[in-house]
């Protein structure tokens, strides 16, 4: 049985998976999620450690300030996403992926070289808004439920259908009157906001924050969540994030072979489940109540 804090990390993984999924649902392979998460984390870390008026002597960091951080992180991430998205989303496929990786790297090096971000040491002693992992669990679960619900609404919404149309064939979608650039920008913005919100909670949970959170490895790992879980339904990246985050921990009894087995799972996942683990076909087969199935399938 995974303990509370492993569940917290799994939920963080699931949220990051969703953040990569959103642009992908509009056909855009963006790997900027760890970058936006880093931004969100720094908003939380800087506000809660540098602004003395916040928290101060209280044993637990006040929740209203946490909310303020979340709002601020969302606004900053959205603004950044719009500024960056305008030029970047003109790129396609792997070029977009590389451009977003380049942005992550630029961000990482700039943060590393700024004194107000604590340089390589980063920011530590970030105050805790919750006394134990259960508080984080509840907050992240709420965020995941909201994000999942939003994805669910999206599936039946014209915007969601426009995203699917852009994913399947951008040119055809444009021809039939879809403003494909706007659709892509919205998806990119939503992805950024979700990543930044996750970053705020993650920074508090991890006690410390530094620029390495946004590394290339993190980009690839979050992509693996989506590919492993499946990119057709929002449940896919959630499952991928949960499973792939938990796996290295659950494999601890294997000892030195831990990461070898982990690599083998990443390798075999797409071979055995080319559409990801969660597919429309799987949901058809599962003994779900008919109402659930109807709602989950696009």
């Amino acid at each position: 049985m995974p303990d509370g804090s492993l569940l917290v990390q799994m939920l963080i993984g699931a949220l990051l998976g969703l953040s990569v999924y959103l642009p992908l649902a509009a056909g855009q392979l963006s790997l900027a999620t760890p970058g936006f998460m880093t931004v969100g984390g720094y908003v939380a870390a800087l506000l809660s450690t540098r602004v003395a008026a916040l928290g101060g002597a209280e044993p637990l960091y006040p929740l209203p300030w946490l909310l303020l951080e979340l709002v601020l992180a969302a606004v900053i991430a959205l603004a950044l996403a719009l500024v960056v998205g305008l030029p970047v989303l003109r790129l396609r496929g792997i070029y977009l992926a590389i451009a977003t990786i380049a942005l992550n790297e630029i961000l990482r090096v700039l943060l590393l070289n700024s004194s107000w971000t604590g340089g390589a040491v980063g920011i530590f002693a970030i105050p805790q808004p919750f006394g134990d992992p259960l508080g984080y669990l509840a907050a992240l679960l709420l965020l995941l439920l909201l994000a999942g619900a939003a994805c669910q609404v999206l599936a039946g919404h014209p915007l969601g259908r426009a995203m699917a149309a852009v994913r399947d064939d951008e040119l055809a979608a444009s021809c039939s009157g879809v403003d494909s650039f706007r659709v892509k920008l919205l998806a990119f913005g939503a992805s950024a906001v979700l990543a930044a919100l996750t970053g705020v909670l993650a920074a508090h949970f991890f006690n410390t924050w530094n620029a390495r959170q946004g590394s290339f490895d993190a980009s690839i790992t979050t992509l693996a969540f989506v590919v492993f879980g499946g990119s057709r339904l929002w449940l896919g990246p959630v499952l991928g994030g949960l499973v792939l985050t938990a796996l290295p921990e659950l494999l601890r009894p294997v000892g030195d072979l831990r990461l070898v087995v982990f690599g083998a799972v990443i390798l075999l996942g797409p071979l055995l489940f080319p559409q990801g683990v969660v597919t429309p076909a799987l949901l058809q087969r599962l003994p779900l109540p008919a109402g659930w199935r109807r709602r989950l399938l696009p």
Partner: peptide, 8 residues
């Protein structure tokens, strides 16, 4: 992802 797994 599969090649990443092979690399790991």
């Amino acid at each position: 992802i599969t090649s990443l797994g092979a690399g790991v």
